[in-house]
């Protein structure tokens, strides 16, 4: 779930067909595979032109892959980074009228939206659905290290070792939340550690 109270965070919705589009590019990573399959089966979602890229969870197995091709997934790629490279190349050849749909972790969505923006796509051309863990990418404001997959309100920065408090402030440019030293005022006086982004 996402918290709408965070004004700087993108609002993720659920993937539904955008009938105003003329060409549809769909990408999903890991737990984002399920929303992608749901979108492909949705009434009114055109067979073509569309292009579907999925990096399924490693545990999907042959049956999972068969299910993916059965519902029209054109390309299955091994992992998120290769998917992002494929997406980048794919968008190079796309025309105005394209709609982009993405489902997966917040880190994945952040990376997809950044690539989309580099191709000139704006918010009304992109649909996103958050799936799976709510873990955050956290940017350390002191040393600028990005800490991946943070599930707790506090995280020891991999760059400078400070205990960071994860603020509810999100930068699309950095695709990360803000981390600021938790005990700067009184060393050691940190709030209790809680898993808040499972």
């Amino acid at each position: 779930m996402t918290t709408s109270a965070i004004k700087s965070r993108p609002i993720y919705g659920s993937l539904v067909p955008d009938p105003t589009g003329r060409h549809h590019v769909v990408v999903g990573e890991g737990p984002g595979t399920a929303p992608v399959m749901r979108l492909l089966a949705a009434p009114g979602f055109p067979e073509h032109p569309r292009h579907v890229l999925v990096a399924p969870e490693p545990a999907s197995g042959p049956a999972g892959l068969a299910a993916l091709s059965a519902c029209g997934v054109a390309e299955i790629v091994p992992d998120g980074p290769s998917l992002l490279r494929r997406l980048d190349a794919l968008l190079d050849g796309c025309r105005m009228g394209t709609r982009l749909y993405a489902a997966g972790s917040e880190s994945f969505l952040g990376a997809v939206v950044k690539i989309a923006a580099e191709h000139g796509l704006l918010d009304d051309e992109c649909r996103t659905e958050h799936a799976g863990s709510t873990a955050r990418r956290v940017h350390c404001t002191h040393c600028r290290q990005v800490n991946e997959h943070v599930t707790t309100n506090l995280v020891a920065c991999a760059g400078c070792g400070r205990t960071l408090f994860v603020r509810d402030h999100y930068s699309r440019r950095l695709a990360a939340f803000m981390g600021v030293q938790a005990d700067a005022e009184q060393p050691g006086a940190t709030p209790a550690l809680q898993e808040v982004f499972p």
Binding site: T20, G21, R22, G97, R99, L122, D123, D124, E125
Partner: peptide, 10 residues
């Protein structure tokens, strides 16, 4: 433009 799928933002 709308019929060709152009979004309002463009």
């Amino acid at each position: 433009a709308r019929a060709a799928g152009w979004p309002e933002s463009h």
